[in-house]
Amino acid sequence: MLSLLRSSSAALALLAVTLPPALAADVDTIAIVTPEQGTDFGWNQQGIEGLEAAAEATGTEAIIAQGLGYGNVRPTLRELAEDGAQLIIAHASGYSTEAIEVAKEMGVHMVTGNPSEPPLVANYNLTAEKGAYLAGVLAAKMTKTKVLGIVVSSESPNWNAQSAGFAQGVRAVSPEIELRYAIIGPAAYADVAGARRVTESVIASNADIIFGQGNGSSFGMIQAVETVTPPSGEKVWFIDVIGDKTSIDKGHLLSSVIWDMAPVFTQMVEDVRADVFGTTTYALALEDGSQRLLQTDHIPAEIWAELEAVKAQIMAGEITVDLVLEPAATRAMMSTTVAAAE
């Protein structure tokens, strides 16, 4: 009997050494919590669709908890963990603190906007400055008035990075093109009336292409683009971000800087399985198509071919797109004087 116990203990010890940790093998359910419904053609919808695609790619089950608002999400996160989710995307910057608490409390992998704390907490930094650079090149080649507008709902780091990327793309084509930069409000993510008002003013300053970043408020920008024209009488185009609004376009959607989160979420699942979760910051990349420019019928074929060439140069490292996150630095890039000096 004693020898049987000895040999069983030895066998268990051997198993413990040779098998990967229990956390690494147990991903069969992934989840996402979003502040709003996944029908916004933007942040929430892309997150949910990305998770569903990642679940399909990794053979896991997806649980969606949407429209949770910006209040306390601890109960929902705990419930998801109890329901078997081993990896949860806390898809709002306001969820980060609570998500990290629940990750440690329940032993579940959590993705937040805060710095990584391996092995349970990982950071994802979703912005697409390279895609925005391509959008800037596109706008610079398409504008007839030589005036472009950038309208944003806030000065969040993601928006700053893309505004700066857009400006760099424009300047790469022509330093003389004027950029009109306007912020609707401190956190005007749903302010459609404000977005329309500000965008109409920017168009009145003769901008014929608007690069709009606004979540819900982007619909106000689109409304302005669809209903007013600049003094020169040119048609106004809109370049969107995050999602694809082609299905509701009335003929003014030139393109969109798409955030495809599926490759990012897939990588997260694979990293949990490989026990390297949280050792890197997850980000959108041109290489895997997670950040890309939407091709629409309004973009001439020759310009699209040029954009493809620029994209290849960025991926090859021949063109460097600076990541600018600070509001003051972003605003400074809008100046024509600065561009000319550079």
């Binding site: 409000g185 459609v192 009336a193 008002r197 819900g216 619909f219 209903t227």
Partner: peptide, 16 residues
Amino acid sequence: YMAVIGSGIFVPHMTG
């Protein structure tokens, strides 16, 4: 007025 004349669209929380 805000929805019909000001913005021409309705989205949740739009009164802000």
